[in-house]
Amino acid sequence: MSDPILRLEGVYTNIAQYHILQGVDLEVPRGAVTMLLGRNGVGKTTTLRTIIGHWRAHQGRVLLDGQDITRMPTPAIARAGVGFVPEDMGIFANLTVEENMVLAAASGPIDGARLDWVFQAFPPLKTFWKSEAGNLSGGQKQMLSIARAMVEERRLYLIDEPTKGLAPAIVSTMARALRELKAQGASILLVEQNFSVARALGDTACVMDDGRIVWSGEMRELATDASLQERLMGLSMEAH
């Protein structure tokens, strides 16, 4: 395997008195989709928020392409090429779809060809281009949230549960868009509870429990081994 785009080495993150991450070791291969899996509350979101710098690692290192970004401020991490799609989508409801996208293109004006590609992935965004983002439906908001990350080429995408609570039609739109992104060679660390999506998109997978990575390997291996799923996550993914 080539040099990983992202490496976490023994990362500990505390939030107030709670020790959420307890020594996370994780690698995201370049140009691949890595699924971060696990039950609710095991530290998946905290891992993403620690990488982007919203929460600080108290111990350990976060390396982006070999560069230590552990202590870097969030804007510097973003400028280094990390796109972040939070679990709550983080859209600016009082801004229009256009304004949300303009803001997301931090390095300059939006590239026309890139925008066309985003519109192809998410047609509703073109329809509601001048509408306030707060007036979009839940699925459209999620599309906007991912489109903001896609509007510029990033070295790494951190995406937190993009299909959470969405109707099947929208889930398939999301999955298609993420496949498009993957086809362009993007490196993605994706938290996903929908195993169908995880199985379809993931190249590698890491399973978390109690603030640690308890298993990592090929997604294929996890997807085909029901006993492994049962042991790691206490559920059979064959049921999905």
Binding site: P75, A78, V102, L103, S107
Partner: peptide, 24 residues
């Protein structure tokens, strides 16, 4: 203006503005 956009977005969700690369 873009700075105005950043201010308006920052009023709503400062954390996300920073995650987009702006030094709030």
């Amino acid at each position: 203006t873009k700075i105005g956009l950043i201010v308006r977005a920052g009023v709503e969700n400062g954390e996300m503005v920073q995650a987009l690369g702006y030094r709030l």
